[in-house]
Design a protein around this nucleic acid. Structure first.
Length: 459
RNA sequence: GUGAAUGUAGCUCAGUUGGUUAGAGCAUCGGUUUGUGGUACCGAGGGUCGCGGGUUCGACCCCCGUCUUUCACCCCA
């Protein structure tokens, strides 16, 4: 068999030990915060039925779904006409009925409906799993990446929105990252579309004004025009797009402009309510009301939340919102949910660039016993067990290799202490402890070693 | 899906207008030191120059195709 170059698919990555320790640090941090607020973990399969996934993320999203080929000789069962037609979409429907999950929210909605009788509502869950998108990879964008989702489902209360903002704040404080939270409300966007008389164009409008920062006002207006919005509607939109000032000032102006729109006013009221909660108990992060925040996903119905790093430009590192009807498509109506998703991979990139990861040596073994032979191994094993019983990470080098090699191993693994036990030590019933930082070494007996390590590594 | 750049040792990169045996640093392994790592010195292994085709007496170098990686657009975490 020909030897092949080892490789992995485009946009996927291996995570080596050093990276995994860093990734675990992120996962452990978010988990600890999620749990503190009463969220519990679930997991769902990597694959969902394609019918659960298709149509949930818009036309663009459907294209980005990874589809899994049916097993067996599926082509022989396929309609001859469809094969002849060479229409990929039609053919896909015939030969693929499963797909890799695109996010965690839709599978969660499916999960909620499927398990509705066992769930204790309002249901607060978190979920940390990989998702897949057949996107073209680039900076901060992968084909396989991890999301850390927290959602409450079965509660309309805006206390949930407030709580999620607190969670976001706390997570990023713990990770020591400066962030800016952007807040919007889909109902306000609907109100705006209503106000200019083009409710059908709400997606085009929001997508276009979302680009304001990037391409500028003129290009936004151009894009709106090409999307079929009449000039007068665009005129009407200008004061809204260019809204400036503090959050309260923006809200005041909006209230004026949208006074005839019931839904628009409802959106404003919702934001005010959330801001009101935040007045009672403030958060550290900057929070900005941002009408240009649209987010592509069309299932948001209320709050829209997005978080950006203030120090590294990498797109959003966390995002989410409220969705009223997501379970509806799976047959369960009137269940509203709200949640956000932390993008673990981008957060990793940000922390890495800012050099804010804690030292990995914390996780490495604290003690390595050199292996100088069979007799010595047997002498070591009971001591090693005692140390491990103290919850101190320790290991014995598994081979009687050259000392140089064993020392180099300890060095590379950042192990703080090496214990050397050879003939001499056994004869005297002692051991040699070497501090790998200073190079100092001294002879101790077993109890002295245990005492020493206890003092050193147990607070 | 659109546009651009890129690919030489495990990694980071040199490589003359196209010329015969493709180099360096780091890493690996061995030695200086059979009981001492991180520093030093000596040495060794490791390459179908992304892949396929073409031009040429001759291609790492030029041309075409293809794949990879990267960047931007679309979209998104």
């Amino acid at each position: 068999m020909a030897i092949q170059k080892p490789s992995i698919p485009k946009g996927t990555r291996d995570f080596s030990t050093d990276e995994m320790l860093k990734r675990d640090y992120i996962f452990e941090t978010v988990k600890s915060v999620f749990r503190k607020y009463g969220y519990l973990p679930i997991e769902t399969p990597a694959m969902e039925n394609l019918s659960s996934l298709l149509g949930k993320y818009g036309e663009e999203g459907d294209k980005l779904l990874f589809k899994v080929l049916n097993s067996g000789d599926f082509l022989s069962k396929t309609d001859e006409n469809i094969l002849q037609e060479k229409n990929s979409i039609k053919l896909t429907n015939q030969i693929s009925e499963k797909g890799l999950r695109y996010d965690l929210t839709v599978p969660f909605a499916r999960y909620v409906v499927q398990h509705r009788n066992d769930i204790n509502f309002p249901f607060k869950r978190y979920q940390i799993q990989p998702v897949w998108r057949a996107d073209r990879p680039q900076k901060g964008r992968y084909r396989e990446f991890f999301q850390c989702d927290v959602d409450v489902i079965g509660s309309n209360s805006l206390l949930n929105e407030y709580e999620l903002l607190q969670i976001i704040d706390e997570v990023f404080i713990k990770l020591d990252l400066n962030i800016e939270i952007k807040l919007n409300n889909r109902k306000i966007l609907s109100g705006i579309a209503e106000f200019i008389g083009h409710q059908d164009k709400i997606i085009d409008i929001t997508v276009a004004i979302d680009k304001l920062d990037k391409i500028g006002l003129e290009k936004v207006n151009e894009e709106l025009l090409t999307k079929g919005l009449p000039q007068e509607a665009i005129e009407k939109l200008q004061p809204i797009i260019l809204l400036k000032g503090t959050n309260l000032e923006k809200l005041a102006k909006l209230k004026e402009v949208l006074k005839t729109s019931e839904i628009g006013l409802k959106g404003i009221e919702e934001i005010e309510q959330v801001l009101d909660y935040l007045n009672v108990k403030q958060i550290k992060a900057d929070l900005e009301l941002d009408l240009t925040l649209a987010r592509g996903l069309n299932y948001y119905t209320g709050a829209i939340i997005e978080v950006k790093s203030k120090d590294v430009s990498i797109g959003s590192i966390c995002g989410g919102g409220r969705y009223d009807d997501l379970t509806g498509i799976f047959g369960l109506d009137d269940v509203s949910g709200v949640g956000v998703s932390f993008g673990a991979d981008r957060i990793y990139d940000v922390i890495f660039q800012l050099n804010k990861f804690p030292e990995n040596s914390e996780n490495s073994s604290k003690v390595l016993f050199l292996n100088l032979g069979n007799q010595e191994e047997k002498y070591i094993l009971p001591i090693l067990s005692k140390i491990r019983e103290l919850q101190i990470n320790a290991e014995i080098y598994p081979e009687n290799a050259k000392m140089k090699k064993q020392m180099a191993y300890a060095d590379k693994k950042n192990i703080a202490y090496v214990v050397i036990i050879g003939e001499n030590e056994i004869k005297e019933n002692k051991l040699t402890l070497k501090n790998m930082n200073s190079g100092e070494q001294k002879m101790l007996n077993q109890n002295e070693l245990i005492d020493f390590l206890g003092k050193e590594f147990i607070n």
